[in-house]
Design a protein around this nucleic acid. Structure first.
Lengths: 253, 253
DNA sequence: CACCGACGCGAACGTCGTTCACTGACGGGA
DNA sequence: TCCCGTCAGTGAACGACGTTCGCGTCGGTG
């Protein structure tokens, strides 16, 4: 996003990008933003190529200069949503001091839940893809976005375990087949955690995800009307498993 | 499903239903079955009114004699899927003796997971509805199906807790707001369990659901290729929380 | 200046959900 | 027996969708 300088011009970008490339990039972004806006306004089925084009003062076929197909556009938007969710979580994290990883982990978890509850359509789009095993080139971008998102949790998780010297579960207690797979995970995907920590991380993430998923999709309505206590209970239990039960604080700081 | 008898006739049904009503009911069921088949064959977007009608040798507008709208049809199919899933779980339950509720609970849980992994489109249809808060009359039927489904778990859960006199969490330890809501749940929705048991039930169900959801949607691929150990670990932990850690048995019986 | 490639448009195809007027058959009452 | 009302089913149509194609029309390049 080049900002106009004092004279009102826009600084010339590095010569690597011509003017053509710049306006093209701008249009690409406008497409993604418009799609994103339609998603939040009218749900996933409102995100049609024709509606996006209409909103931009264009016609639908023109969008095919920028997007391979409608499915392709969904991937683009999914990546954007991933990044926005991650930004919200990072903001919650950075609002707390660096030397309080436990508090930060709680804040990030609550930010994840809060964002999901405030953006059900986007959450559904990102976390409920049926079988999108498309070999498309954009898929790697999606995986990248998912990994960046997961790392916000992962790094904090690792920081907490290290800071409080949390007792890790004995590897011998776990299913060897499970351990073998956890050992095979790329270290950069899991912030260099030892196997016991990776196990704790997967367990915790599954719990958070399951909890938020049920809340967003209204599958807890039969039991509770306000599902916040269910989430907080899961959070406290995760803290206990990480050996930082004392560091748990209720949402009100 | 009336079966032809030895003479080849079909026994006359109770006179309460006229011939017209019978063929209508048959058509209704054919519609649901065809929709169901298209769902498993071509995914949710293959479940088109026109495709269903085509498959039945009819035209799409004719379906409107039986269904209010396409959304209505989705609800009908969802109810069917709920019932089929429940049947699979009940079959797994009844394969074990009545006096082994712990074994039955494990079997039912695994049946739930197995069915979900074998039927991803149906699972997605049932457990991932965005905001279907339609006040339609069919909604009550959906809630009924969901409740019948949940009761398979709930009754077994209650049976296990009673059988093994499981220690329930102290109500004083829980968030009062949480407890109050759990107390307000209809007793028939929760098999008459005390509040501590209801809490355990919600916790366990959220874990199972989260685990299966992530497996079905492929959100565990970054960590493990075979996610069975993740599920079994959750199962074992649930058993431990129920005070029946000793009753846990790995899948191979 | 002339060229060429990128961009956007309009028209079109086939699909979808949905509505409408119409037809035909079936069944109960005279 | 006939007869009429109810209801299943049809074909045409509307608007919207994703997608393809051919045509103009610019802007940057030689």
């Amino acid at each position: 996003m080049a900002e106009p300088n004092a004279v009102g011009w826009v600084d010339a970008p590095p010569t690597t990008s011509s003017r053509r490339q710049r306006v093209r990039a701008a249009t690409e972004e406008e497409i993604r933003c418009t799609a994103r806006r339609l998603l939040v306004a009218h749900g996933p089925e409102g995100m049609t190529l024709r509606a996006i084009a209409r909103d931009m003062g264009m016609t639908a076929p023109a969008l095919y200069r920028y997007v391979d197909s409608h499915a392709d556009l969904l991937v683009l938007v999914t990546v954007d949503v991933y990044d926005e969710l991650r930004a919200a979580m990072e903001a919650a994290r950075d609002a707390l001091p660096d030397d309080d990883p436990a508090g930060r982990l709680l804040a990030v978890s609550r930010a994840f839940r809060g964002w999901a509850l405030q953006h059900p359509p986007e959450f559904g789009l990102v976390f409920t893809q049926p079988i999108v095993s498309l070999l498309k080139p954009t898929e790697s971008e999606l995986e990248g976005a998912a990994q960046r998102f997961g790392l916000v949790f992962g790094e904090l998780f690792a920081a907490v375990l290290a800071r409080y010297r949390s007792p890790l579960p004995a590897v011998a207690e776990l299913d060897p087949a499970y351990v073998a797979q956890l050992e095979a995970v790329d270290a950069d995907k899991v912030a260099g955690m030892p196997v016991g920590a990776r196990y704790l991380f997967v367990t915790a993430w599954v719990r958070l995800y399951g909890c938020v998923c049920m809340e967003v999709f209204g599958h807890l309505g039969w039991a509770v009307q306000d599902s916040a206590p269910v989430f907080e209970d899961a959070l406290r239990d995760i803290a206990a498993r990480m050996g930082i039960a004392k560091q748990y604080r209720p949402p009100g700081a």
